[in-house]
């Protein structure tokens, strides 16, 4: 904000009523740079003066905005994670991680909770979609050469995010405590048990016993609602931050010039 504008602003304020002035002072204390930004200065401030927006760079390349380049897959994955967090926390109000109670709570969601079936269905389909979208996002990055220097580390963070996504999906699978959940986890954890030496201890550590039971349910629950989402947030933050530090999305101008001339 230039000094001249500030003076004009002060003059205008003198003519306002006390409430309007208070309101304007309050608004300005939160959003220092006006309402909808109109010029380049305002557009820059809008992004880097906002905690939630400043994960973005102030400017991005046109190439990275092309829908046919990214299909928005990374952002869709992040959106799905937000939706899953929101519906997941909401579901926690109704859920009880007990082998005798959990299934009844599923039935309650269908019958006695207002829009409980929508809540559970959105969570379920968003979870399935996230697994698919994360894999497609990885394929997009591969097929466009997005893992090449200087983005090696961010690709590795991406692999960790894929594993965390699978972990979240798998731990959530047990929570309804129906036949599908019980036996899928029994089979899934037995696959882990085939590893030499560490396999069997790992399986017992995950299940808290020899078979899937109350101990396994509480372990999967804590992993699903606290540990894995927490790790996910940390690794997502690194992932997004590194996109900026590595110069935005991959761009054809990064190619080394060939003998035939630059392939730009």
């Amino acid at each position: 904000m230039k000094i001249k504008d500030e003076l004009i602003n002060l003059n205008q304020q003198k003519q306002k009523g006390w409430f309007k002035q208070f309101w304007s002072n309050l608004y300005r204390s939160i959003f220092r740079y006006g309402k909808i930004p109109q010029d380049a200065e305002g557009q820059s401030y809008a992004v880097f003066n906002n905690l939630f927006l400043h994960i973005h760079p102030v400017k991005v390349s046109r190439h990275s905005l092309k829908f046919s380049y990214t299909f928005g897959l990374g952002i869709i994955a992040a959106i799905l994670f937000l939706i899953l967090t929101f519906t997941g926390v909401w579901l926690m109000f109704y859920y009880f991680p007990s082998a005798t109670e959990a299934y009844n709570r599923m039935l309650d969601l269908r019958s006695s909770v207002d829009f409980g079936f929508v809540l559970r269905n959105v969570h379920k389909w968003a979870a399935e979609a996230m697994v698919v979208v994360v894999i497609l996002h990885m394929a997009r990055v591969f097929f466009t050469g997005g893992y090449k220097p200087p983005r090696e580390f961010n690709w590795m963070i991406g692999v960790v995010l894929l594993l965390l996504t699978l972990g979240l999906s798998f731990t959530g699978y047990l929570l309804p405590w129906d036949q599908l959940a019980f036996w899928a986890i029994t089979v899934g954890t037995s696959i882990a048990g085939y590893a030499p030496i560490i396999g069997e201890p790992l399986r017992k550590f995950l299940l808290g016993g020899d078979t899937v039971g109350q101990e396994a349910l509480i372990r999967f629950y804590v992993l699903h609602v606290v540990i894995l989402p927490g790790l996910m947030v940390i690794f997502m933050a690194i992932h997004f931050w590194r996109i900026r530090k590595d110069g935005g999305l991959s761009h054809p101008s990064e190619n080394e010039p060939t003998k035939k001339g630059n392939s730009r």
């Binding site: 380049y69 050469g145 893992y147 090449k148 220097p149 090696e152 761009h251 990064e254 190619n255 392939s263």
Partner: peptide, 13 residues
């Protein structure tokens, strides 16, 4: 993967 294939060709397409 990114340490096996490091050649900066074909990026962004």
């Amino acid at each position: 993967v990114p340490f096996i294939d490091r050649k900066k060709i074909g990026i962004g397409k």
